[in-house]
Design a binder for these strands. Structure first.
Lengths: 148, 148
DNA sequence: TTTTCTGCAAATGCTTTGCATGGGA
DNA sequence: TCCCATGCAAAGCATTTGCAGAAAA
């Protein structure tokens, strides 16, 4: 079974266990979030679900996103002047490279913060459970003028 | 002259040079942002300005914030389900410790990301100009139940 | 005097809510 | 069958905009 299928099945099991019902709309939203690593925003998710279910309501998409966020299966990202974006929480710890010209968002896998985190916990008494690290700058394509 | 006064005067000079006029409302907003290291949100800024100028309009506060953001003098912060907060950009590079119980935000000075940043630039071709690092967890007081 | 800024109110845009109908289990 | 979920429309809320009068320069 493909990894993609496994992820969806795990999600469905989790939803059932949490007392949520499995509907085609919810399946579609989950499928889209698992398949796409592009940090989609609500509108993009809505439009993709609508291709499959033209009658779906925007509110349903919002409610599904809220549910997935509530059980911790997706993470919400908000960058300046952009709509909220979502990524599935399952992926490895990573930071984001945000291009201030084209608004592109690129993942960068790194584990360099492990030591820093424990240092800060010791120093401050703060009990850190996760972090978010975003770098802002200009991506390679925008530097070379490809996106103009 | 106090550092506080110096900061304000520098800001005023910068505003004049940029072709902006100096009004009492703008002075008040700048004063509040310079004096407070607490990451105030728009409503808190508005209420504090109103103590001094009861007739000030919310739109004026928004416009002043937009202007200061535009010239890079303040940085906008947005955390989950909270309104936008602002801090003056002049302060040293630091990360934020965000308490998920009391919503408190604490600054933590660190420069540990310098090397990581240049590594990423080399590796990805991304030209990084700044970053944002937030840690989420439970602060000391909330762990010990002080805030319950 | 000229031009920008202010303050009010209206508009905007994303998100949430209420509720009657539909559909999982 | 029993509830929960859906989809529509209305409401909510932070933020932005338009504009006439006020105030910097």
């Amino acid at each position: 079974m493909s990894n993609r299928q496994t992820q969806i099945n795990n999600l469905i099991t989790l939803l059932r266990e949490s007392g949520f019902r499995i509907t085609p709309q919810r399946r579609a939203v989950m499928q889209i979030l698992v398949d796409n690593k592009e940090h989609l925003d609500t509108d993009e998710i809505f439009n993709r679900v609508r291709k499959e279910y033209p009658k779906v309501g925007l509110a349903t998409v919002y409610k599904t996103i809220a549910m997935l966020k509530g059980i911790g299966e997706i993470t919400e990202l908000k960058f300046n002047n952009q709509n909220r974006r979502y990524e599935s929480s399952g992926s490895a710890p990573h930071s984001h490279l945000v291009c201030t010209k084209c608004n592109g968002i690129f993942d960068f896998n790194n584990d360099a913060l492990g030591n820093i985190t424990s240092d800060i916990m010791e120093e401050t008494g703060f009990n850190i459970s996760n972090y978010r690290l975003d770098f802002f700058g200009v991506c390679h394509d925008c530097q070379s003028g490809k996106n103009n």
